[in-house]
Amino acid sequence: MWTFRRKILLGYGAGLFLIIVVLAGAMTLLLRLGRASESILRENYQSILAAENMIDAAERQDSATLLILLGYEQQGVSEFRGNEAPFLQWLGRAKDNITIPGEKEIIDNLEVKYTLYLKEVSDLLFLQRTDPPAAVNRYHEVILPLFRSILETCIKLRELNHETMYAASMRAGKQAVQAVFSILIIGGVSVLLVIVFSLFLSRLISRPVSELKEAALRLAQGSYDVQVPVRGSDELALLATQFNLMVEKLKQFHEMNIDRIIAEKRKSEAIISSVDDGLLVLDENLRITNLNPEATKIFGGIPEGCLGKHILEVMPEKKLFHFIRTTLASGQAPR
């Protein structure tokens, strides 16, 4: 049986389920955003950082080459070799982080160019010792264009990862907007459903209670034909059923009492009429409620229409009125 308590628990259980769904959806979307951000940092930022550091190392090596041409061979060679290892190290990191289409071709091309660059600088060092003018020409004709090509390739690698990171950032932004709208929609639907259920629940409770209240008021006014509609099989329906049974019993009791009262009244009237002495019946307000034929004769033919009237309206006898008041006040007959 669907009890009232079970209905309430079911309704609020559904609301709680919707809240859990909203929280789970929010957590899922946040995790997706977190993974997207992590992917941007892992896949693109490392390659951008590698390209920046290779550009820096290549520029330092070019400056070292110029030092060699200016005659500072030992200092130039030391600085050139000191930046060779960092360049190769960052090149290796870039090779290990290939995630974008076209990135492998750029890195392979960069590796070939840098290997050739190292060979040309090594040859330049030997040429500088034997023929400095020829070494300068060799630098301008071969090494400098090769250096610039290496820089352009590093910049190309950096820009490719920049564009990819920007696209990934835009996707993450769209996911964030979608997450916000999804949470708002699900949350709005949940709130709407909770409001609808609350209104339904309030009506479910208030309607039977209002009907019971109206029926109780009508019952208090003496209407014993009132009935409360019975809907369903929960506690409120059981209460309505019991109320209807109570009304039916009160109706039977009321009808039984009326019949008894009428019978008692008829019995009293018969007794009053059969008494040989004059008998006048008054209530606490000294209004005539009954009298027998002998009383009518004694008091000079009082009309029967005097029932319900004050005794002074019918018999303006002050002395008699005084005796009656004294008797009512003391409860004893006057002497």
Rank of each mutant, 00 (worst) to 15 (best):
E163L: 07
Y166A: 15
K174R: 13
A216K: 02
A64T: 12
N290V: 00
I55L: 14
I68M: 10
V189I: 14
E43T: 03
Y117K: 12
F299S: 05
G34A: 06
P145R: 03
I302G: 09
E105F: 11
K213W: 13
Q89E: 04
N109D: 07
L239D: 05
R158E: 05
G173I: 13
E313M: 12
A179L: 04
S149M: 10
V226M: 11
N97K: 14
L238K: 04
H310A: 11
S78M: 10
I100N: 13
I186M: 15
H254P: 05
E211T: 12
E43W: 15
A270H: 05
G188V: 00
Q75L: 12
R32M: 12
S169W: 11
L279Q: 01
F87N: 10
R60C: 05
L280P: 05
K95H: 08
M256S: 15
M256E: 13
G34V: 00
R148H: 14
D123P: 01
G76V: 04
K7G: 09
L192N: 01
I20C: 14
R218C: 07
R138F: 13
S78Y: 00
K174L: 11
L91M: 11
N137Y: 09
I143P: 01
L16G: 08
L307D: 08
A263S: 05
G34D: 06
R218P: 01
K251P: 02
T153K: 07
M165C: 06
F321A: 13
M1H: 09
R203L: 12
L286A: 13
D123C: 08
K297L: 03
N285Q: 11
L160K: 07
A333N: 10
V230W: 05
T327L: 03
A172Q: 03
G82D: 08
I298T: 07
V136R: 15
A240M: 02
T164K: 09
F147P: 07
I8Y: 07
F299I: 01
S223W: 08
L307I: 15
N290W: 00
K267P: 00
D276I: 05
Q46F: 15
L286W: 09
L10S: 10
T99I: 02
L320M: 10
F17G: 09
A134L: 12
L144P: 00
F147H: 09
V314K: 10
Q227N: 06
L250C: 06
R138E: 10
Y12G: 12
L184G: 03
S63T: 13
K319C: 03
A58P: 00
R287D: 08
T289R: 11
I40Y: 12
G308S: 03
A24G: 13
S78E: 02
G278F: 01
K318P: 15
L41T: 15
N83D: 11
Y72A: 10
L212P: 01
G187W: 09
A220T: 01
P86C: 08
K104D: 11
G331Q: 03
Y166P: 09
Q175E: 14
E317K: 05
S268K: 00
Q74P: 04
E255W: 07
R218K: 04
S268M: 00
P86W: 09
P101R: 06
G300P: 09
